[in-house]
């Protein structure tokens, strides 16, 4: 019986892949064929036909993508704005009630404050460690192996990482031996073991460590490529002038990769604004560790209030917007 269900599921998945892939290919193939038939590139009107076909064809290529993007990313933004002005079940218009509630809500204030702390600590720390790891591993023979190992947490899910770190922070109480690494170390150095993730305020930092652990590898990989791209001559000149390795790193290398550092910083900033799984798994926002994304999730599921949840989602969107604008401007500059 169970085997049957599983088989069905696998069949369903494979048929979807086949239907999806064939559907895509068929759409592109036949729509192009149709266009070529409608405006054949021969006969008396060949020139005009080619022009017309060329004007239409890009939209055939873009059609599915634009449709999906509009439905899955653009429409929700508009709809969320609408929802934020309506009540819990999206039936009655309530004006700015949700916004007023939000500003006064203690949990929201706590989330904003915590998100702010995350924003200050995590991108900075990840970029800092990433830069150090990149510089150090570029100079040794087993650097690539070391890089792989530091990069590895990137492949682990946030929830898997939360299990890994929850085990490190584990607290057993006074009667039994500590099996969490952190408490064992604390005990070894004569301290008192604590239930770290329930410590008001400080627990935020224990959660941040998880994300820093994951994101450092990302920062390292990108910064390492940037460091390698620095022209040799600038470094050689500095060596001839008698600069120490530290001076070369701080005064010659780092200033040349500011652009990349900024990109790494902003990319991690966006990840931080959306951080959700770690908080959900470690504390679920208890003990003063709530963040916006988890608060939104809470109001969506437990609160079943689409108005309030959408309002919180819009705040996250608003916080991301400056980076979005900055990215678009950079992309446009590059294309010119």
């Amino acid at each position: 019986m169970r085997g049957g269900i599983v088989m069905n599921q696998i069949l369903l998945a494979f048929s979807t892949i086949i239907i999806g892939v064939f559907g895509c290919v068929a759409y592109f193939y036949f729509s192009n064929l149709l266009l070529d038939r409608a405006y054949p590139a021969k006969g008396p009107n060949a020139g005009r036909n080619i022009n017309r076909a060329n004007a239409i064809r890009p939209w055939l290529f873009l059609g599915p993508a634009i449709a999906i993007l509009s439905l899955y990313l653009v429409y929700p933004v508009v709809n969320s704005v609408w929802l934020s002005f309506h009540d819990a079940s999206a039936e009655k218009f309530v004006g700015f009630d949700n916004y007023i509630w939000m500003i006064k809500d203690a949990k929201f204030q706590e989330s904003m404050l915590n998100n702010l702390m995350w924003l200050i600590v995590v991108p900075g720390a990840s970029t800092f460690f990433g830069l150090i790891a990149a510089q150090l591993t570029d100079n040794i023979r087993w650097g690539n192996l070391a890089k792989s190992l530091i990069f590895m947490p990137m492949a682990i899910s946030f929830i898997g990482a939360s299990v890994i770190w929850k085990f490190i922070y584990d607290y057993r109480g006074e009667a039994s031996a500590e099996i969490g690494l952190l408490n064992a170390l604390v005990e070894m150095f004569g301290g008192t073991p604590e239930a770290w993730i329930t410590l008001d305020f400080w627990n935020n930092f224990f959660l941040m460590i998880v994300l820093i652990w994951i994101q450092t590898g990302f920062a390292m990989v990108i910064l390492s490529a940037a460091l390698r791209g620095i022209p040799e001559e600038t470094i050689e000149a500095a060596i001839l002038d008698g600069a120490s390795p530290l001076e070369i790193f701080l005064k010659i290398k780092v200033p040349q990769i500011w652009g990349t550092i900024a990109v790494v910083w902003t990319t991690i900033t966006i990840t931080v604004l959306k951080v959700f799984d770690i908080v959900l798994a470690m504390t679920n926002g208890q003990w003063g560790s709530q963040v916006l994304a988890n608060l939104m999730f809470d109001w969506m599921f437990r609160g079943a209030d689409s108005g309030r949840a959408s309002t919180i989602a819009l705040v996250i969107m608003l916080l991301v917007t400056p980076i979005m604008v900055w990215n678009i401007r950079n992309a446009r500059k590059e294309m010119r």
Partner: peptide
């Protein structure tokens, strides 16, 4: 391919890269 609005579409894609998932959940 050359067509009017290409630059705008590319900019839109770059913008959509960072749209938080949280926005999309309830409406979708």
């Amino acid at each position: 391919m050359n067509f009017p609005g290409r630059a705008l579409l590319i900019a839109a894609v770059v913008g959509l890269l960072v749209v938080p998932l949280q926005m999309a959940l309830i409406p979708l």
